[in-house]
């Protein structure tokens, strides 16, 4: 690779990196502890840099997809240390870096817990990462059609679960 190419590659990465960093930091903050989030963010960026040429124009879903796999791998690697870490954090809790949302929505949290993890994750990608089915498809490595169907089902199921728990908010028009 000649120098001009290296420079333009660097420039391109420098341009898109801040948005990726911001998005992936949030993605990770929602799903893991701060220390793992830092590690996985660095790793994700390394992969983005290394595979910059493969990055599609819609780079955020792609970057989420990379972060998702890095996170899964990090969590697998940590499995053995997990119990110890859990104990340490109980005895010496790390400072809270993220303030919880103002009023905790217990019904929602409980309903999310009752969904299958894949269903809950699709809803998070939709609501938190603000992705349309096409973007969700890229993150999860499934077809846009499948993403769309799964998202639809997950929404239905979440609504149903919240209704069933008897604490439904004013969601008029929901099924009986």
């Amino acid at each position: 690779m000649d120098l001009v190419n290296v420079d333009s590659r660097r420039a391109r990465f420098e341009t898109l990196a801040p948005a990726v960093i911001d998005a992936v930091r949030r993605y990770l903050a929602r799903r893991t502890d701060p220390a793992t989030a830092d590690d996985v963010l660095s790793e994700t960026l390394l992969i983005c840099w290394r595979r910059l040429d493969e990055m599609p124009a819609e780079h955020l879903p792609w970057a989420y997809g990379v972060a998702r796999l890095c996170l899964a791998n990090a969590e697998r690697g940590q499995r053995r240390q997990f119990r110890l870490l859990a104990r340490i954090s109980r005895l010496d809790p790390p400072p809270q870096t993220v303030d919880g949302p103002a009023p905790a929505d217990d019904d929602l949290a409980a309903a999310l817990c009752r969904l299958r993890p894949e269903e809950a994750e699709i809803l998070r990608l939709w609501a938190w990462e603000d992705l349309a089915p096409a973007g969700i498809a890229v993150v999860l490595g499934i077809s846009a059609n499948a993403a769309s169907i799964r998202l639809h089902r997950a929404k239905e199921k979440l609504r149903k679960t919240m209704t069933a728990s008897g604490h439904e908010e004013s969601t008029e028009g929901s099924r009986p």
């Binding site: 911001d22 903050a29 929602r30 960026l45 939709w126 938190w128």
Partner: peptide
């Protein structure tokens, strides 16, 4: 409703220095 429960809603953005550091580290 889901968004109101977003744990990263109040996450402070990375400082420019942090961003620069991360970018440099990757490259």
């Amino acid at each position: 409703r889901l968004r109101r429960a977003d744990p990263a809603a109040s996450l402070e953005p990375a400082s420019p220095a942090q961003v620069a550091h991360l970018v440099e580290e990757a490259m």
